[in-house]
């Protein structure tokens, strides 16, 4: 087919969490520019399976429409590759040139151990959510929506924070592997709304404590997280997390 590309891949291969990994070269020929990056990996895996010499490459993926946050490739030194505001499944081969060499690595963080090849264990995020990223609601009928006035600005900001899909690109991009953007988005979406108010102090204290326990690094405000976030979560959320945390430490009975 005309216009198709040949791509040289360097992919991180690692049998399991305990073994040593290394970059392995693959040549993928006849790649359509309209393929997504993951579809290019499907083509390569099909070939690896039919050749039978090498195991297929393990990588995370699910919805393939940019909302689940599963696809987690670190492409040419950037999470989710060169484009702004997209996940790997929304990255298309037209963003590359014929003959390009592309290095693909897993997210790197002590808190995100490699399971196999490009798949990492992101359950540290689940444990942070479980420590406080929720609101407690009694069962029964929902009350009338208009009985809880919420300023439009707050609703918008909460919604923008809630767009976080927990993909971990912030951790992957940060030189300190800090999870601050993720935690700040989860704290913000609830702190901005009246439903989140009763548990606001315990929430922020527990989530920060869990974040530190998991072994994520500290935030040095480089802004790499927000620049690479597929949902473009703002750094103002990190400032809000700092405010919420110090307010809870200095102004509440809890610690």
């Amino acid at each position: 087919m005309s216009g198709n590309m040949n791509i040289n891949l360097k992919v991180w291969r690692q049998k399991n969490g305990k073994s040593q990994g290394k970059l392995v070269d693959y040549k993928v020929e006849g790649v359509s520019p309209d393929m997504s990056f993951l579809e290019m990996f499907d083509v390569l895996n099909d070939r690896l399976v039919s050749e039978g010499k090498d195991e297929p490459i393990a990588f995370d993926h699910d919805c393939r429409e940019g909302i689940c946050g599963m696809c987690s490739m670190y492409i040419n030194g950037r999470p989710h590759g060169p484009n702004q505001g997209v996940t790997t499944c929304q990255l298309h081969m037209r963003s590359f040139k014929d003959g390009d060499t592309i290095v693909v690595e897993p997210w790197r963080a002590a808190a995100f151990p490699v399971i196999k090849d490009l798949a990492v264990d992101r359950s540290a995020f689940d444990r942070i959510i479980a420590s406080g990223g929720f609101i407690s609601v009694n069962t029964g009928n929902a009350q009338d929506a208009n009985s809880l006035p919420i300023p439009k600005d707050n609703a918008d900001e909460a919604f923008a924070a809630a767009a976080c899909i927990g993909c971990g690109a912030c951790v992957a991009a940060c030189k300190n592997s800090s999870a601050m953007l993720f935690v700040s988005a989860k704290v913000s979406q609830l702190a901005l709304l009246p439903q989140g108010d009763p548990e606001r102090n315990t929430r922020v204290l527990n989530m920060v404590a869990q974040m530190d326990t998991e072994g994520f690094g500290a935030c040095t405000n480089t802004g790499a997280c927000s620049a690479e976030c597929p949902k473009e979560i703002s750094l103002t959320n990190i400032a809000r997390l700092n405010r919420e945390y110090f307010a809870a430490q200095l102004g509440s009975d809890r610690s």
């Binding site: 040419n76 790197r108 002590a110 592997s177 800090s178 802004g223």
Partner: peptide, 19 residues
């Protein structure tokens, strides 16, 4: 302390793209 949060470094790292 922050270096410990990433024990395995990236082979390709494009820091100037985002910070």
């Amino acid at each position: 302390q922050n270096k410990k949060a990433r024990p395995v470094k990236y082979q390709a790292f494009d820091g100037k793209a985002n910070s």
